[in-house]
Design a protein around this nucleic acid. Structure first.
Length: 366
DNA sequence: AAATCGGGGTT
DNA sequence: AACCCAGATTT
């Protein structure tokens, strides 16, 4: 555990900040001192590893869900070296239920880089941290602010909302110009003194008070400084993304059972949809009942009547999946490539990361 | 059904 | 620099 660094003296920063900015920080920290949560497993930690894992988990999941996963994850991988030594499949398995497996893969990759290149110690400058997979500017800043009390602004979804309302920033934050403006505001407001508390406070304000809908402006410590609150249109900020029509794509998924009731899974290519996860072999959606050779699988299959289509929706398209049950009639000469294929027993799930709809389909087999 | 969200990737 | 993409959950 790294030793706790001293806080920079207050006079180093903050003297030149304008009164409004300082009032914001003061009122926010005051609120945090009274209402802030400090009882979470990663709260008050100065260990970059613990902070990093919590930040990655929290990117995609709410606090209440993260707590248990975080405890288990930390119990199994107490240090970055132990995470680096683990098999990816086990890391993915421990992640099952949190979703967003790409982040677990990045976590594992980054752990190996930290272990190999930095001898298990996290880099202490922003640029080096941002080089690590899965760590962008905001996450890197949060790690350095919490672990080393370095003054860096963060800009996660909660902070974006707070700042967009505070200054009635027009436009969708997905646009470069809007995001840039928000980063400038974030930089302006970030204090040198108590940067860790400030960072936690502004995130908590966004997640607990400055809600996307029905913001609790009555409970907000900085409502008096908020332009949107003054105009009574807080909910209009930040502007929402322009929406588009989602195309529908179709695929068939083979539920191939063997005589032991196991189902055949394939590991997907490392990039693209469900990258690196295990899934069912795909085929044409309109494959009828038939017996035919599947040369790529090395099997002769008898496919049955297709099951009901399930729709899985991504940000950009709908995927209509037709599950097609199948039995193995005979192995072909082609050798099963054991690296990428596995017989999976739904009764005794193995340590594999499964794509969400695949998991649903397999669970329905029981 | 729509909105959400930081990071990665492409042009 | 200015986009688009992935993925799963909540509302």
């Amino acid at each position: 555990m790294p030793s706790r660094p001293k806080r920079p003296p207050p006079h180093v920063f903050g003297k030149s900040r304008d009164p409004r900015t300082r009032r914001f920080g003061k009122q926010l920290l005051n609120w945090f001192d009274r209402r802030g949560r400090r009882d979470l497993p990663w709260s008050r930690s100065r260990d970059p590893y613990r902070i990093w894992v919590s930040e990655i988990m929290l990117q995609q999941t709410r606090v209440a869900t993260v707590i248990d996963y975080y405890r288990r994850f930390m119990a199994r991988f107490p240090s970055v070296n132990q995470l680096a030594d683990a098999d990816l499949d086990e890391v993915l398995h421990r992640w099952t239920g949190l979703g967003y497996y790409a982040r677990a893969r990045n976590l594992h990759r980054a752990a190996r880089i930290v272990a190999d290149k930095y001898y298990g110690r996290f880099p202490t400058d922003l640029d080096a941290l941002v080089q690590l997979p899965g760590i962008g500017r905001s996450t890197a800043s949060a790690i350095l602010a919490f672990a080393l009390l370095q003054r860096h602004p963060i800009l996660d979804g909660n902070v974006k909302r707070v700042l967009a309302r505070l200054h009635r920033v027009d436009g969708w934050p997905g646009k470069r110009a809007v995001e840039k403006r928000l980063w400038i505001l974030a930089e302006q407001y970030t204090p040198g003194d108590r940067v860790d508390d400030y960072t936690q406070a502004i995130m908590d304000l966004g997640s607990g008070v400055c809600l996307r809908r029905n913001p609790r402006c009555g409970a907000c410590p900085v409502a008096g400084l908020c332009a949107a609150h003054r105009h009574g249109d807080a909910e209009a900020y930040p502007a929402r993304a322009p929406r588009k029509v989602k195309p529908v794509k179709e695929t068939g998924m083979l539920l191939i059972r063997n005589e032991r009731g196991e189902v055949l899974l394939e590991q997907r290519p490392p990039s693209g949809i469900w990258g690196g996860l295990w899934g069912l072999p795909e085929c044409a959606a309109d494959l009828g009942s038939t017996t035919r050779d599947f040369n790529t699988l090395g099997l002769t299959l008898k496919t049955g009547r297709p099951c009901e289509v399930i729709r899985h929706t991504f940000t950009h398209f709908h995927l209509d999946i037709t599950p097609i049950p199948a039995r193995v009639r005979a192995p072909l000469d082609t050798v099963m490539d054991n690296q990428n294929r596995v017989w999976y027993n739904p009764e005794q799930p193995r340590m594999l990361g499964l794509a969400a709809p695949v998991k649903r389909l397999i669970e329905k087999l029981n």
